[in-house]
Design a protein around this nucleic acid. Structure first.
Length: 670
RNA sequence: GCCCCCGUAGCUCAGUCGGAUAGAGCGUCGGUUUCCUAAACCGAAGGUCGCAGGUUCGAAUCCUGCCGGGGGUGCCA
């Protein structure tokens, strides 16, 4: 055992990483490959077991055929760890429980206080990440569906950067598809010139909706009889299937399937079915004079729109001129939303950017025999997948598959990507499976390709989030609504303050913006991204519980303490007051602060921002407990007061910085 | 037909690639304000982790089957 000296020159560190490294050295005596066993050092699951626990003795003993408790003790004897921890204890079947030394923890929390980065150590091997997220179709207004990708992608970029990686965010906008054919067609036939003068993007969006509705109408008209026939057929089949199921239970699945399809078509009490929806879409066109007129004078509109798109792609002069005119305005409109969300991109390289490269991509794939012709289309076939990856359609047009391959090449060759992350709806996972497999065959081997999936945002009825009328919810109106609700809460709270209202109108508006936008983002981020989640206004801005508001409030309270105490943050920090850990609540809070780097690593490990929200919630919780139990300004003596001021200020920095890595703001007063 | 995801407290969800007595928030019930923002804190009740097997010292977690829900599925992205 080494002698235990006083801790000098203490540097902030990732404690878990440090403990693992210590274990790794000790484990050399027991195995050739200590890393996986060192990974089994974890934060303790229960405070009774200390601060951290090592679970590696059991599997190791099993391999060696040894007694796990004995082996745990031998491992403890090898450990050089007593500068950090109290003597480790072997417990249960062979757990090793670790408790940080109080003096060490105190030194650590003080070191973090002196560290700009709050103990986060830059990655030893920084990687080049390209993060592809948000990716709306320009010209279509953004809706809730874009929110998750945008919010999660932005948070991941921020966290990866904080960990010292080189991150390029890239908005792969849809700027080359059919929607431009629709706008161009609309511009040529239905333009309201004065509206376009006043609000070009608004008019373009109207044209898009108008033309889209017309194109849709034709399809709906054709589809409706088929849907009705299908429903009749299913209703005929149902009794027969039910009879079969009665006789033989293995047929029950078939009944379920029929019933479910009938439900989809004819709807339920609460929800209209596909037939009714199709009917009402037809009805909407036929009952609107302008639309009805347009559909009569443009019967071939769907084909004509496709032609406009094809002309654009073929280099038609006028359509390309219109595209050049429309695109910057559409992008400017997107920028306004991003600015409000506090999201920015390093690159906005849309589909159009890769257009010149697509022919060469297909040629290259073909020359390597990776792509072959099938039913007139050029396809890459991936073993084990029935669906081909179509890189050129039978009509000669390229697909998003082609664009995506070209994009991967570009990101590797031109951007130097080590890893490409796609923050995209989980429903597209098959596409990405095929894309990645095709890219590997194509020789993109030394790059991480990850589809960072996320689930669907549901309404309170458990169905995809829509307005009452069944439309998708526009993103801007969603933000407006959130801010308006936040404003009500801010007003009520400020009016109810014991010492009277503190905020003027402008401040209240500013707080409402931060709380409203933060609430929306947090609602998204705090769920495991894989799960669908149910969107709830009430929960989003709740004052209690796991919400952005709770953390923002914790931060504002700290601001309140410092203000009331007449303490200047800069002075406090430069004075270098030493934090002393006496009360249990102080120690618990300090330990939590020291775990900040762990939280960021946990986010980066699987690209899960909810690891950070969870950490911040726990931090704010521990702060509240501390706040109840330990008076700061009225502490019993100056040294305690100064220690607590420093601790509280440091906690505030962690909360503020942590929230900022989620793209969420804070206010000094609220 | 094939493929993927999900099923954990009344509700909404976590659960750190197999670890100790399964956690949190909301809601419910009870308590806390001469005291730094009660937008807070403390406590209680609440579970067959969909079901049945299997793998092993040990399973919500891994494997198989079944039940239930959602999504995708050769020329939209």
């Amino acid at each position: 055992m080494q002698s235990v000296g006083f801790v000098h020159n203490h540097h902030a560190m990732n404690i878990l990483a440090e403990l693992r490294s210590r274990f790794s050295k000790a484990l050399d005596e027991f195995t050739d490959d200590p890393e996986p066993f060192a990974e089994m050092v974890r934060p303790a699951q229960d405070p009774r077991f200390g601060d951290f626990q090592a679970n590696c003795a059991m599997p190791l003993a099993k391999r060696a055929g040894a007694n796990p408790r004995d082996l745990a003790q031998q491992l403890v004897d090898e450990l050089d760890i007593l500068d950090l921890c109290d003597p480790p204890e072997v417990a249960g079947p062979g757990f090793i429980n670790l408790r940080l030394r109080d003096d060490w923890l105190e030194a650590e929390v003080n070191a973090i206080g002196l560290d700009e980065k709050l103990g986060v150590v830059p990655a030893e091997k920084p990687r080049k990440y390209v993060v592809d997220f948000s990716s709306p179709n320009v010209a279509k207004p953004m809706h809730v569906g874009h929110l998750r990708s945008t919010v999660i992608g932005d948070a991941l970029c921020r966290v990866l950067r904080a960990l010292g990686h080189d991150v390029t965010s890239d908005n792969h906008i849809g700027d080359w598809g059919t929607q431009f054919g629709m706008i161009i067609y609309g511009y040529k036939h239905f333009l309201d010139h004065s509206a376009y003068q006043q609000d070009p993007v608004g008019e373009l969006a109207r044209l898009y909706r108008f033309v889209n509705t017309l194109c849709d109408y034709r399809g709906a008209k054709e589809k409706l009889p088929h849907l009705e026939d299908r429903l009749d057929e299913l209703k005929r089949q149902l009794p027969e299937a039910q009879a079969e199921a009665k006789a033989d239970k293995s047929h029950r699945k078939k009944v379920k399937r029929i019933e479910s399809e009938i439900r989809d078509l004819s709807g339920t009490g609460e929800r209209s079915g596909e037939i009714e929806q199709t009917r009402s879409r037809i009805q909407a066109v036929e009952s609107d004079p302008a639309l009805r007129e347009a559909i009569q004078s443009h019967p071939e509109i769907a084909r004509l729109v496709r032609d406009e798109t094809a002309k654009l792609h073929a280099g038609d002069e006028e359509n390309n001129r219109l595209w050049d005119e429309f695109l910057p305005q559409c992008i400017a409109a997107l920028e306004r939303v991003y600015e409000r969300l506090g999201v920015s991109f390093d690159l906005t390289l849309g589909e159009s950017h890769y257009q010149p490269q697509l022919a060469a991509v297909v040629d290259d794939l073909a020359s390597r025999k990776l792509a072959v012709e099938s039913d007139g289309a050029m396809c890459v076939f991936i073993e084990g997948n029935a669906a081909p990856f179509i890189v050129r359609k039978s009509d000669g047009a390229f697909t998003y598959a082609t664009t995506d391959l070209a994009t991967i090449r570009y990101r590797i060759d031109e951007l130097g990507a080590d890893a490409i992350l796609y923050v995209v709806d989980a429903r597209q996972s098959e596409h990405f499976d095929l894309l990645f497999a095709a890219a590997r065959k194509w020789g993109c081997l030394d790059v991480e390709l990850t589809h960072v999936t996320f689930g669907t945002v549901m309404g309170e009825d458990g169905r995809p989030f829509k307005t009452r009328a069944g439309d998708v919810v526009g993103l801007e109106s969603l933000l407006d609504q959130a801010v308006a609700q936040a404003r009500k809460i801010v007003d009520a709270n400020d009016d109810a303050k014991p010492g009277g209202a503190e905020l003027d109108d402008a401040s209240r508006a500013q707080v409402a913006e931060v709380v409203g936008i933060g609430g929306i983002k947090y609602a998204d981020l705090h769920h495991n991204r894989d799960s669908d989640y149910i969107f709830s206004w009430e929960k989003m801005l709740a004052k209690n519980g796991d919400t952005a508001t709770y953390m923002q409030y914790a931060y504002a309270r700290i601001g309140g303490i410092l203000r009331k105490g007449g303490v200047d943050r800069e002075q406090l920090r430069s004075a270098g007051e030493r934090i002393r850990l006496i009360e249990p609540a102080e120690r618990a809070l300090a330990l939590q602060i020291c775990r900040f780097p762990e939280a960021l690593e946990a986010v980066a490990a699987e690209y899960r921002p909810n690891q950070l929200t969870q950490y911040l919630f726990e931090t704010a919780n521990l702060l509240s407990t501390f706040y109840e139990q330990c008076p700061v300004l009225k502490a019993e003596d100056d040294s305690t007061r100064n220690s607590r001021l420093a601790l509280v200020d440091l906690t505030g920095r962690v909360i503020q910085y942590g929230l900022s890595l989620l793209g969420i703001g804070t206010c000094e007063q609220m």
